[in-house]
Design a protein around this nucleic acid. Sequence first.
DNA 1: CTCCCGATAT
DNA 2: ATATCAGGAG
Length: 221
Amino acid sequence: MPRESSKTRQQRAVEIDKRLQQHYPQASSALNWRNAFELLVATILSAQSTDEIVNRVIKDLFKKYPTAEELAVTDREELEQEIYSTGFYRRKAKNIQTMAQKLVDEFDGQVPENMEEMLALPGVARKTANVVLNEAVHSQTGNYEGIAVDTHVKRVAYRLGLTNQTDPKKVEPDLMELLPQESWRQAANALILLGRQYCTARKPNHEDCPLEGLCPKLQVP
DNA sequence: CTCCCGATAT
DNA sequence: ATATCAGGAG
């Protein structure tokens, strides 16, 4: 691996990180959660859905089922109906209930606070685990274990030339190497906002993009 | 790789 | 009509 190109990418990553912090200083999850359990459920529901729809659904959902205990034992079809509009509702309902039951059985109904136990929960992989750990557990300490790579982070990071990978599991270590650990939470949230507002999947707005000058304007893979 | 799946933008 | 939306499991 040539020294020149790696250095250039690293330096651009620093500039991008700085620009993102300037433009999105308070970037955080747009999901309306009040505790780690709510964020965990909300993030499971957010698969192939939008924050707007998920927020609409969880408002009523947590009014009916505020805790893991209540969510674990409720009627499956009733839960499916409650989360229907987020899509994948059968699989999500099953995952949420088995996950909630495991929290009750093994963690006194609480969300575990480390990566290994998070990943052992049904329906939870690195993206969801990183979101919950970074936003609800480590947000004050900055002791992040990884970067939440969702569809926006994956797309924007690729277009910015921060990775040549398209698999989110391979994008994450690339970003972890390029960005300082204390930026991992903020940077991911800022990349999501940038992805929603400017670097959209279908029609990226290069003219008004706050990262103007730092982007090679790569085409979508 | 396929499947799961409704809501919305283009 | 089709692509895409804070993905994960088999």
